[in-house]
Design a protein around this nucleic acid. Sequence first.
DNA 1: GTCTATAATCTGATAGAC
DNA 2: GTCTATCAGATTATAGAC
Lengths: 195, 195
Amino acid sequence: MARKTGSHSEITGPRIRDAALKLFARHGFAAVSMRQIAAEVGVQAGALYLYTPDKETLLLDLLRTHMDDLIADWVSADPGGAPVARLEAFVRFHIRFNLERADAVFLSYMELRNLGPENFAAIETLRRDYETRLETVLSEGAAAGIFALRDAKIAAYAIIAMLTGVNTWYREGGRLSRAAVGDLYWDMVRRSVAA
Amino acid sequence: MARKTGSHSEITGPRIRDAALKLFARHGFAAVSMRQIAAEVGVQAGALYLYTPDKETLLLDLLRTHMDDLIADWVSADPGGAPVARLEAFVRFHIRFNLERADAVFLSYMELRNLGPENFAAIETLRRDYETRLETVLSEGAAAGIFALRDAKIAAYAIIAMLTGVNTWYREGGRLSRAAVGDLYWDMVRRSVAA
DNA sequence: GTCTATAATCTGATAGAC
DNA sequence: GTCTATCAGATTATAGAC
């Protein structure tokens, strides 16, 4: 049966989220109007409210989806087994995942402040979950005498910050391939925690 | 001679910059109105334009002052001499300076996008200057066989990102003192580049 | 499902009184 | 140096036609 003209609910929703992600990352949440998002999608501003109750919820959906994907993808990528192998997998996974979703990563660090307290807390819980997964790998390696750490929690923070920093300078087609970047960072991380 | 009532040019200017820094960091540049800044200072919105030609220039002044101070303070703190001592001094300096100016650090990473192209380029030049100073210490240590590095530029990016990350989790009065944080990070940095 | 029109409010910036 | 008043336009969100 022919679809009613102008009815595109299954594709307009994702297109709104894509446009909002791109514009929020580029200009900042507060600087982007609902009209700009609508124009990017090709609908009128009023139509957006069929897909989100308000602007903040649109941001929350983007952030929650990103954090859920991050954790789910790491759970899939985690090889388990020896702590050294798991740590190397984490380093390469984190760099790759964050480069592939640079806009969402930027939003997750910069626009949390535009969430209400309870939404903020929900995203923070997901971030803590991810950090704790790395911390656990480090702690297990330290307990096995493979890593020498003075503080597994701080080491996890330090490693994640270092890896996420790749997003601030890496440019596709530049001097280094993604694989070369992974090699360089794994070398530094490995030595920083090696026993 | 008695000052004319309501005339406070030497103190209102700094108070405007203080208020703008705090509000921009808390809510984002675009989300803060000139009226909010004025209210925080205790003047009317129109009075702000005696101190800044427009909102973007107010942001630019905050960012440029921050970067100028960062570089000048590191030049003062740099002990010179042995690369290991200089690197340790850099680690402790960067953590201390950034914790003392958390709002300005956050602004410098998040609100560059609200600057016009030429102002953006001016701030980026200052940031590159700071990064290059660390890179030079690393390169000299590598040339002397004291550090083992595969890429001094990437190592500088990695170290700066790791150290700046302290701002995202450190809370005054928490489990660790600032000195203890400096010790932990210096231990990790030292091992990540040691020959 | 999308559109147009609208409500109520806020925006950056300026002019002119004091 | 600060205030009040104001301009011209943008803002989020909703109501109701189609």
